[in-house]
Amino acid sequence: MNRPFRIRIGRPLAWACLILAIVISLFPLYWMLRTAITPGRELAGDNAGLLPRHPTLLNFERVLGLTTREEARAAGGSGADLDFFRYLRNSILYTGLVTAVQTLLCAMAGYAFARLRFPGRDLLFGVFVAALMVPPIFTLLPNFVLVKELGWLDTVAGLVAPSLLMTPFAVFFLRQFFLGVPRDVEQAALIDGAGKGLIFWRVVLPMSRGPLLTLALTTAVWTWNDYLWPLLVAPGEETRVLTAALGIFLKQSPNTAPDWTGLMAGSVLSIIPVLLLVVFFGRRLVDSIQFSGMKG
């Protein structure tokens, strides 16, 4: 009989596999940090140990624009101007603005579709749902043209325009949630003489903090990670966000010997908010993913 034996070896082996998966998930991020604290001039001879021989914060200082151009070049930079403080600020602004406004406006729209009565409601909602199926690239090209015609290239307006007021997904998500809210709560308030608008603000919104936060988290992650749109419409120094900045940084870096230590320092900056999100909202993030798994 080999069954008892299999159990004894099976469990440790299973744990080993799980730990290996965690290591594969996290080690590359450790390597990012490890490279970012390696002096640029030493990387070629110091690219293997778990810690660099002479750890330094110089790479962070130079991508944040805290060093002079000469110092940056001496540290292995290409001499291009970098100001990741500004890109970080732009990313926070872009993400914060889109997340806050979009979540609120889509909650209003979702509520209207779920609870208010007006002619053509289901047809209109059908059109919104149809837009869910359209791949973003199809609207991206004409939207770029539109933003260009409006003179909004390299402005915050151009950056946020397509996503500020709504996304079909957000409206769809919140409508589904509002449909499931028990009606008696609203009925009671209606009998008390409150209008439906007031009920939305005073009763429904406060009740919906959970789903609103889930949606806001999703929108924030999505907006923070957005690459192609900011790169196309707002590549200018003033409005450049982190993701676009990393892409442009790579392009400016010599092809044959990219400025890896600087690039990894910039990369580390781009994932700090992500790690904060996991620390503060880990449970909600995991729950929201698993929730879509259960719905499937």
């Binding site: 998930s25 991020l29 690459y227 993701t243 892409g247 781009s270 994932i271 993913i289």
Partner: peptide, 14 residues
């Protein structure tokens, strides 16, 4: 489980 989704949260460019 949180640790396993960290890579998913990293921006694609990064």
């Amino acid at each position: 489980r949180s640790l396993l989704v960290v890579p998913w949260l990293v921006p694609n460019v990064t």
